[in-house]
């Protein structure tokens, strides 16, 4: 185990799940819903989320936290704001893209931005389970 990983395990730091803000896109809303499902229901004891805007601002505490923690970013569009903001803050995230999950579930139906609807909630659940698997992989790697 590398020194930085050993430090994280010793500190018992939760995995940070960080969705994009996606205020204009339905997939942004899904990334957000899936993140909350993970941190509130699927893996509440070992994950947390934080505000992505803190990284855009360059908030020192938030930047330090993503550098010292394992981070999973969840992006709703190819610009990958969450991943890029974490990388520019010095973090090395595992990246999940909503589109990759959606490709396997095209039957999902119409999804809105403000209200993602039943189809959006189904997709968010699938995405959340994918994120939870990644959380488990990361924790298994860290022993």
């Amino acid at each position: 185990m590398s020194d930085d990983r050993a430090e994280r395990v010793a500190a018992g730091r939760p995995v940070i799940v960080l969705p994009c803000s996606g205020v204009g896109k339905a997939f942004g809303s899904i990334s957000r819903e899936a993140t909350w499902l993970v941190v509130e229901q699927l893996r509440p004891a070992v994950t947390k989320t934080m505000c992505l805007a803190l990284l855009t601002l360059g908030d020192e505490d938030a930047v330090r936290e993503v550098r010292e923690s394992r981070v999973i970013t969840v992006d709703g569009c190819p610009t990958a704001c969450a991943r890029v903001n974490v990388e520019q803050s010095g973090g090395s995230p595992a990246a999940v893209r909503v589109f990759d999950v959606f490709r396997g579930h095209r039957e999902a139906g119409e999804i809105g931005v403000t209200d993602i609807g039943a189809a959006g909630r189904r997709l968010a659940r699938v995405l959340a389970e994918e994120i939870a698997r990644k959380v488990d992989e990361i924790r298994a790697e860290e022993g």
Partner: peptide, 8 residues
């Protein structure tokens, strides 16, 4: 505009 786009 999505705020994080200022960096990304």
């Amino acid at each position: 505009l999505c705020l994080p786009l200022f960096l990304a």
